[in-house]
C-alpha cells in the first residue's frame, strides 16, 4: 500500500473516533434516561443530553465524509 492510498482514511480517522465517542456517550445517556421514563427528568436528559450528543456525533461523521480528500490519481509517468 502506498502512502497516498493510506493518507485519506488516516486523516479522517480522528473525526471518526470523536464522532463515535460522542455517539457512545449520547447512547449511554439515552440508556440512563430510560431509567426515569415516567418523569420529565428522563425526558429532559434524553432531549438535551442524549439527543444533542448523538446528533453532534452523526454530524461529525457526515462532516468527515465531506472533508475526506480523494486519493490522487496515479500518474502513469511513474511507471516510465
Amino acid at each position: 500500500m502506498t502512502g497516498s492510498e493510506n493518507s485519506a482514511p488516516t486523516r479522517s480517522r480522528p473525526y471518526l473516533r470523536w464522532s463515535a465517542l460522542l455517539i457512545v456517550v449520547g447512547l449511554l445517556v439515552e440508556l440512563m434516561s430510560f431509567g426515569a421514563l415516567q418523569s420529565p427528568t428522563g425526558f429532559l436528559a434524553f432531549a438535551l443530553g442524549s439527543g444533542s450528543l448523538v446528533v453532534a456525533g452523526i454530524g461529525l461523521y457526515l462532516f468527515s465524509l465531506v472533508r475526506q480528500p480523494k486519493a490522487p490519481a496515479v500518474s502513469s509517468s511513474t511507471h516510465d
Binding site: I23, L37, Q38, F46, V54, G57
Partner: peptide, 23 residues
C-alpha cells in the same frame, strides 16, 4: 455504526419518551 444505528436509536428513544409522556 455512526449513522444507521444512532439514528435508529434516537428515533426509538423519541418514540418511547413521547409515548411514556402521555401517561
Amino acid at each position: 455504526a455512526l449513522f444507521v444505528l444512532p439514528v435508529t436509536c434516537l428515533w426509538a428513544g423519541v418514540s418511547t419518551h413521547l409515548e411514556s409522556s402521555k401517561s
